[in-house]
């Protein structure tokens, strides 16, 4: 799913639906509230090579081939959706103890690096 422009309201709604669609489950959270990520953070260009290394912390749980088996796929996510999701965990706006912990220790640059890596995976 492409996000046509960085109009924040459109962006938030798009992300919510993107998550539900990609996770492939009807039980995926759809009401995350209006958490906003600043344009400065969204503008960070991630280093995909660093992201590939950091992804080692993700692929112990999230299957790299995109299989969904109790833990959502993060493969092929649109970069901005990925950043939004990770920032919402980092800021503890979104519930999940593992994800809050994992996102909580990543810098904005590291989140951008992961987003750049996962976006290019098919």
């Amino acid at each position: 799913m492409r996000i046509p422009e960085l109009n924040k309201r459109v962006f938030i709604i798009s992300v919510v639906f993107a998550h539900a669609a990609i996770a492939g489950t009807e039980t995926s959270e759809v009401d995350e509230g209006e958490f906003e990520v600043s344009e400065e953070i969204l503008a960070i260009v991630g280093d995909a090579e660093y992201g590939e290394y950091l992804a080692g912390d993700c692929t112990g749980c999230h299957q790299i081939d995109g299989s969904y088996d109790g833990i959502p796929s993060i493969t092929g996510w649109e970069s901005e959706s990925f950043v939004w999701a990770m920032q919402s965990y980092k800021q503890k706006e979104r519930e999940h103890p593992v994800m809050q912990m994992m996102a909580g220790r990543l810098s904005d640059e590291e989140i951008a690096a992961l987003a750049a890596y996962f976006e290019k995976l098919e």
Partner: peptide, 28 residues
């Protein structure tokens, strides 16, 4: 972090389902 005592059945079930996903993830 650690799970809390007294958590709801829904949370505990979600945790179990997550563990199934983790097993698939780590073995892959």
């Amino acid at each position: 972090f650690i799970s809390a005592t007294g958590e709801s059945a829904d949370v505990r079930q979600a945790t179990y389902e997550e563990s199934e996903g983790w097993y698939s993830g780590i073995t892959s």
